[in-house]
Design a protein around this nucleic acid. Sequence first.
RNA 1: UGGGGCGUAGCAUAGUUGGCAAUGCGCCUGGCUGUUAACCAGGAUACCGUAGGUUCAAGUCCUACCGCCCCAGCCA
Length: 430
Amino acid sequence: MQIARIIEISKFKDQEVTIQGWLYNKRSSGKLRFLQIRDGSGTIQAVVFKGDVSDPVFQVCDELTQESSVVVSGIVAADKRSSLGFELQVRDIQIQQIAKEYPISPKEHGTAFLMDHRHLWLRSSKQHTILKVRHALIRASRDFFDGQGFTLVDAPIFTPAACEGTTTLFETDYFGEKAYLTQSGQLYMEAAAMAVGKAYCFGPTFRAEKSKTRRHLTEFWMIEPEVAYMDLDGDMDLAENFVAFIVQRVLESCQEELKVLERDITILEKIKTPFPRISYDEAVKIIHDKGLEFEYGNDFGAPDETAISENFDTPILVHRYPAAIKAFYMKKDPADQTKALCVDMLAPEGVGEIIGGGQREDDLDVLLAGIKKHNLPVEAFNWYLDLRKYGSVPHSGFGLGIERTVGWITGITHVRETIPFPRMMQRLTP
RNA sequence: UGGGGCGUAGCAUAGUUGGCAAUGCGCCUGGCUGUUAACCAGGAUACCGUAGGUUCAAGUCCUACCGCCCCAGCCA
């Protein structure tokens, strides 16, 4: 007997197959039993007619509880009444395990309850669909960089000091010394770029900020490319090509998923390069023209980002922020020393920042002065300064937050649903 | 860390001027040969977030505490 996955059930029309899965829901009608079986690839209705199976097999249907694991064999039959187009005419059922009373019923629940049962909630169609899109997006990201000659270089998780010094870090005891969980792989990618030319990393990053918004996690995943001999313009080219590529790939490979998530894909279909590029000064003008209160020189808040991005229906690149509000490693604009050669990508629909990056300071003395100005411990950055002693070159890169990007593409407004097991200020379990 | 909101059965909620704690889902029992979050009949299930207080009487009023949600700051 062939074992079939539901996603490719059409290949087995009129054949007898076995489905290995779980009971999602069931209904009954006299001598008929309707079992909704899911196997992780899809859901199919298995129809059990009393005349087609032995009495014990028919009785088993009434013992099955929600999420019981079952192996069901039957004939794959085309049926117009099925949303899948096919249903299974059951011949045999084997119980793997009868589930205890399942906490998540197919009705409404609150987010807190569902998050407490995140390990089970992942089985529900919407959540498992989001995971599929996340996977597609990660695979597209790797394909993009791999296809352009980048080398994947893994960055460490334990780090001796802050990368940026501005944000709060998680501190750990490292054999009697202090170590911190990384907040970015960037500094290590700069070293990697000097070794391989084009490097990227993909891994978890940690921020101990006490943020409780729908855009924040304490543990999130970033993909961070870094390229030697690339300036800010090249960085913006790379960023927009990358984002356009992954959106296109998700549109192609996740049509069903986006339908389940009820995502309006016409918005995503409009995404084409080049993206609008506006300077910080121009962005401030947009905010002021809309009558919002904003002090020139500050960083943008969430409402400011929304105001800027709602003028456009694709992501936009905002460049050259005031150097004073940016990290020490940002190179200053030769045309205006008060500005940094940095760029943020703001996604439309009020999603906000999904990319932050820019051109790095490549001059040893300027960088050293920056470290001191930010009151960072110079010793911890000696290895990083070496990169400016031994064949320093202009170089640029950026970091893209996976969860925010998945949220934007799927239309899920809270990042806690775009990562399998979110870590937030108020949540460490499951 | 500020501003706002919410804690009642396994889940989602209602609960009026303080007076026997209710409804839907899920669960259990039974019925139906085409159900689509099926339907019909019956049944079980509550330390009303915690601790005090006011009162003849508190889910309801008062005080403190705990937990959660939303928004903001910080950021990807």
